[in-house]
Write a protein that binds this DNA or RNA. Structure first.
Length: 1129
RNA sequence: AGUCCCUUAGCUCAGUUGGUUAGAGCGCUACACUGAUAAUGUAGAGGUCCGCAGUUCAAAUCUGCGAGGGACUACCA
């Protein structure tokens, strides 16, 4: 007894997944799928490290399915695809969750709790959900090596990160500079944007605001004695003003009037739309009564006149006198105090001219930098550039009468604040000096420190930067070599981002992360960047020799020993390295720069850090290309995250891209298109989903429903549909195959029957199959998984199941085990097997079961899993486009005939005599002749007649071919349509005969050829006709007595088959039949006796007067009933 | 505010280099078929291809300006 194909009781995808998963574990399938591939043919994949301190969501299933698909596909193509898992372990979210758990704040770190304890807590927290992640990874069928992941907090990883940073440092691409950051002088700390966005931070406050008058220096555009008006809500920043900013397209006016505080005649510049706002109250347009000449200070009304107009760009470059000249910027003072322009300027409030203090505003700093205007920085006692306000929030000594005052009264201790704030004092001074146009109180919203409840300042804080700007061009150039999916993300979003990229601020004032490995002397004249444990150990030794340290923290570390244990003898985190004091070449002590490295640098370092390069795996990275991924995939939100940092680091350090192909996938939304969130409660729980529908259906749905880069509206009904339509059909097809293959004991042991000896339909489906292999391969190659999935699905449901199997059913269960039958088995087997392999990247579980169900019997493959096989090769000879075309004609014609039957209410079971198809050309005649038998049996008609139009009975239709005519005579298109529409049958026949038409239209001579027309048959008078596109079919609906009887016989067969099934007979059981005799049916039965018997496997059929036993009574046609009974032989 | 994506039937989506009757599946209605039955066929209903303007003989498709939805980044004198 040979092995049988496994027969399943029903399709349960979750349990298939479970079973297959067990098998994979038992057989180490994943490991084998890597190890059996050629070591010299690697496909490099980088896993973006998730943060394990949060639970995974359904969108992770999406992202990981995409990664998995291409890794599996490339494995099928013979590549060795190593996939190392990784964990992102540092960063603010971890710290915040720890602070919350411990009930502490950032300030308590180092006081209430040591940094060491704090970091230990972070380390513990961060890997909290690894088990859950591992479980998801396994259940969704994502193959990635979780046994040896890279972890960003491990010393080896950090050492590689330091090495990278030092490379950048050595290329002189790092500097310490400042950015304007929210700063709380009372707390003495910078605030992250995250902290500023906490509720309650923005509070309404009343501030003294000033519209200041900046006196223009002599220029060609403006008259003398002209002032620019600029409004500020922070007068304390006015001494730090170094520029004024106008909107380049905004209209400005020159106004002649008087200052309300001094009475001086002045010319003012402001934006036209804001005249009404600024020149309000006392101000009024001058007229006959209110003259410019008659004004004196104290008058109720102040006259003004409009003198001139400009647009912003006219004003750019004009210089002005410094408003409050206490000091000058230490750098490029000659470039200060000029008008510049920026697109952020609006005319919603103020004057349309913005006061720029680059030391106290983010926009200000940026626009000033763009125009080369220096910030108001002065040199302090140590020759270091500092702003006019110190870290306590007080004015520096340069500010004369203001020196030592807090810029905001809120910073004084209770009861110590002076009556007049700095803002008020400055306002008074400006009024007296004819420099204030207007002083007002103003209520607005201003951010406050959430710890001290005092207003914050935007303040320049020192940070370490990487000079991205210097490298921008090269980064953009390299970006062009990356294959982005979709293209627009790479060219648009990413490309633009690169173009506008600023220097990368590396510094983070946190605790849990990789420390910046730079040590500096106190006077900032000497510094060192550490690039390895070895270097640090040596530097420590020097410091010990110089007497700065007592013992070497890396004493236990053995240089060159890459053992894990050796790398655990020390710790690179802040709590350890901050204690290290190094010695400078001149013998001065150097302390570590306090900040940590931005966590994005951690993950961007992973291409080499995951392999501890260059300390280990040097050959792998340098020679085998493991430092550069062939493929990565993450969410589109990583464009400026991981995608960027990978690219930046790789281009700076190695002058190459970090990845060659990248898919940025969209979001997973709920079925209404709303972002999933736990708060709204519309998040889909991934585990529940996987256990309900199975990973295969979920993955297939996600991939085929929308392109990965479009957002996915996640709808459970969609998964059900996939389950039923795709997997259900595939399962049914296998079920059909196995049922009969087991009966016939087909095990693919016969010689492969040459394609030429197989019937048309076999060659057709084989051709389709090979086209499918080709198209699916191309889709995977170009990173289009959606296309691949849809192609496979289309083949399975439309071609293989609904056409091939439907038309071939009887070949499987009728007759002997002949060559035709074997051909059918071989053909269907090959289709199923190939589909299993093609779909395995997307549906890894079911495809593996299908593959094994087939292979266990045939033993065609020695591999135990579909994932260990290779992608099918295309048999180009099997692809026959003409054949595919022929079959598509057959499908079309069948559908038309069935539609005609439907219209006339003639059952398909009732045979008809004839259909006629007009042939338009010989090619068509040949094609339809080839598929004639298929059509006839499918639509149950006896003959097909090709109708050559010799008689002229066919009514023809002519349609111009717009595509070809358009190219030649586009202009006359409308006229040509008008003419052809009017053509009679004779005209059309003439065009056909003459192979074209020539004539004159609108004065031009026109020559049209055969290809410029489509002639089709419209109607055959006197027949039942269906027309679709170019095809026309006529059906002879006459039912002769013989046909009628045959119909009745078929009716019997149908009933008997149903009865067989109901009686629980095996498909191979033989039967005996008794039918109640009736004049109306006897002839029908006797005429078709052989047919009925052979169809129903009946040994005998008796017409009897009385049917005994359990009998079926049914109506053959209206008014004619009979009884039948069947018994197993 | 900038950048990018999306908008086609009730729903989910196709729609090639512009070509004149815009398609599929699901859902709905009706009728069939069935030795694959958690299938299948046929027919019907269902469209301002988001809007406006432009280019063109011809626009769902190309260009511009808008609208709505989404994402990212940044800021407000």
């Amino acid at each position: 007894m040979s092995v049988k194909y496994r027969e399943h009781k029903g399709l349960n995808l979750p349990s298939v997944a479970k079973e297959v998963l067990e098998k994979w574990k038992l057989e180490n399938t994943f490991e084998e799928s890597v190890s059996t591939r050629d070591e010299n043919k690697p496909f490099v994949f980088f896993e973006g490290p998730p943060s394990a301190n949060g639970m995974p969501g359904i969108h992770h299933v999406m992202g990981r399915a995409i990664k998995d698909i291409f890794c599996r596909y490339k494995t099928l193509k013979g590549y060795r695809v190593e996939r190392k898992a990784g964990w992102d372990t540092h960063g603010l979210p971890v710290e915040l969750s720890v602070e919350k758990e411990l009930g502490i704040t950032k300030e308590d770190i180092g006081t209430k709790i040591t940094i060491e304890e704090y970091n230990a807590a972070c380390k513990k927290t961060v890997m909290r959900y690894t088990d859950v992640w591992n479980k998801l990874t396994e259940e969704m069928g994502y193959w990635v090596d979780m046994s040896d992941p890279y972890v960003t907090y491990e010393n080896k990883y950090i050492e590689s990160v330091w090495w990278l940073l030092k490379e950048i440092y050595n290329k002189d691409l790092m500097y310490k500079g400042y950015t304007i950051q929210p700063y709380s002088p009372k707390a003495g700390t910078g605030l992250s944007s995250h902290e500023i966005n906490q509720p309650g931070c923005y509070q309404d406050v009343t501030d003294t605001t000033v519209v200041a008058q900046f006196k223009a220096k002599k220029n060609d555009v403006l008259p003398e004695n002209t002032y620019f008006l600029a409004w500020t809500t922070t007068p304390w920043t006015l001494p730090s003003n170094t520029a004024l900013c106008v909107g380049p397209k905004i209209e400005y006016v020159l106004v002649k009037t008087f200052n309300q505080y001094t009475g001086d005649a002045v010319n003012l510049v402001l934006a036209r739309p804001l005249i009404g706002k600024q020149l309000s109250g006392k101000y009024a347009v001058a007229d006959e009564e209110l003259t410019m000449e008659g004004f004196s200070l104290g008058d109720k009304k102040i006259p003004y006149t409009l003198e001139k107009e400009f647009i912003g760009s006219d004003l750019v470059g004009i210089t002005y006198e410094q408003l409050l000249p206490y000091t000058l910027p230490h750098e490029n003072p000659e470039k200060a105090f000029q008008v510049i322009s920026g697109n952020f300027v609006t005319t919603e409030d103020g004057t349309g001219i913005v006061h720029i203090a680059p030391t106290f505003g983010q926009d200000d700093a940026q626009v000033a930098k763009d125009f080369g205007v220096p910030p108001m920085l002065v040199l302090d006692e140590n020759e270091n550039p500092v702003p006019l306000i110190n870290l306590q929030g007080k004015f520096r000594p340069e500010m004369d009468e203001f020196a030592g005052l807090y810029v905001k009264n809120e910073y004084y201790n209770d009861g110590e604040a002076p009556d007049k704030s700095v803002d008020v004092l400055i306002a008074i001074k400006l009024k007296e000096e004819n420099k204030a146009f207007k002083v007002e109180k103003y209520v607005h919203s201003y951010p406050h420190c959430w710890r001290t409840d005092k207003p914050i300042l935007y303040y320049p804080l020192d940070s370490w930067f990487i000079k991205i700007t210097e490298n921008k061009g090269r980064m953009a150039e390299l970006n062009k070599t990356i294959n982005w999916k979709p293209k627009s993300t790479g060219e648009g979003r990413f490309g633009n981002w690169l173009e506008g990229a600023n220097d990368w601020n590396l510094s983070r004032s946190r605790f849990w992360g990789i420390p910046i490995p730079i040590w500096r002397t106190e006077d900032r004249t000497e510094q060192i960047c550490i690039g390895s444990a070895e270097e640090l150990k040596n530097e420590c030794q020097k410091a010990i020799d110089a007497g700065l340290m007592d013992e070497n923290p890396l004493a236990g570390f053995e240089v060159g020993n890459m053992d894990k244990a050796n790398y655990e003898t020390f710790d690179f985190h802040k709590n350890y390295v901050d204690a290290i004091i190094l010695v400078s070449p001149s013998g001065k002590p150097m302390t570590r720069e306090a900040d940590l490295i931005d966590v994005w640098f951690d993950s961007g370092s992973m291409p080499i850090a995951q392999r501890h390069y260059p300390f280990e795996n040097k050959e792998l990275v340098d020679e085998k290309g493991f430092g550069q991924a062939d493929f990565i995939a993450e969410g589109v939100d990583q464009t400026r995250g991981w995608f960027y940092t990978l690219h930046a680091i790789a281009s700076m350090v190695f002058d190459r891209t970090a990845y060659k192909n990248v898919i940025s996938n969209g979001l997973v939304l709920d079925k209404n298109g709303v972002k999933m969130s736990k708060r709204i409660g519309n998040a889909v729980e991934p585990f529940e989903n996987l256990s309900t529908y199975g990973a295969d259906a979920t993955r297939w749905y996600m991939i085929t429903n929308a392109q990965p880069w479009d957002n996915l509206k996640f709808d459970l009904d969609g998964i059900t549909e996939v389950q039923r339509k795709f997997f259900g059909t595939l399962y049914n097809t296998y079920g059909f195959f196995s049922l009969y293959a087991n009966v016939d004991e087909f095990s693919y042991s016969e010689e492969e029957i040459p394609l030429n000896n197989r019937p048309e339909i076999d060659r057709w489906v084989t051709s389709k199959l090979n086209s499918l292999i080709k198209d699916v391969g191309e889709a995977f190659e170009s990173y289009e998984p959606t296309k691949a999935g849809r192609l496979i699905q289309g083949f399975v449901t439309d071609q293989m199941s609904n056409w091939y199997v439907r038309l071939c059913r009887r070949r499987f269960w009728r007759g002997d085990y002949s060559e035709d039958k074997i051909a059918a088995y071989q053909t269907l087997y090959t289709c199923l097997e190939t589909v299993a392999v093609l779909s395995s990247p997307i549906a890894p579980f079911y495809s593996d079961q299908l593959f094994n169900d087939l292979n266990k019997v045939s033993k065609r493959y020695s591999e135990k899993s579909v994932h260990l096989t290779t992608f099918p090769t295309i048999d180009e000879n099997a692809i026959d486009i003409d054949l595919e075309e022929r079959m598509s004609i057959a499908q079309k014609v069948c559908s038309m005939v069935l539609s005609l039957r439907k219209k006339e209410n003639i059952k398909v079971r009732q045979p008809l005599q004839k259909i006629m198809v007009p042939v338009l050309d010989q090619n068509f005649a040949r094609r339809i002749e080839a598929v004639k038998d298929l059509i006839l049996s499918e639509v149950n008609v006896k003959e097909l007649e090709l109708l050559e139009d010799t008689t002229g009975v066919l009514v023809k239709k002519i349609k111009p071919n717009f595509k070809t005519i358009g190219k030649k005579y586009g202009k006359h298109m409308k006229a040509i349509i008008a003419i052809t529409n009017q053509w009679s049958q004779d005209n059309i026949i003439a065009v056909d005969k003459n192979k074209g038409w020539t004539g004159e239209i609108e004065g031009d001579s026109i020559a049209l050829e055969t290809e410029d027309f489509e002639i089709s048959t419209d109607d055959i008078p006197g027949w039942l006709v269906a027309t679709e596109g170019n095809y026309t079919v006529a059906l002879d609906e006459t039912i002769s007595p013989a046909l009628k009887n045959e119909g009745i016989a078929r009716e019997f067969v149908n009933r008997i088959q149903n009865l067989r099934k109901e009686s629980g007979l095996e498909v191979t059981d033989r039967i005996e039949l008794q039918i109640k005799s009736d004049d109306k049916i006897n002839l029908a039965i006797n005429d078709n006796l052989n047919y009925i018997c052979s169809e129903t496997l009946a040994n005998s059929l008796d017409l009897v007067e009385e049917v005994k036993g359990e009998k079926l009574v049914f109506e053959v046609e209206e008014g004619v009933s009979t009884e039948l009974t069947l018994s197993k032989v």
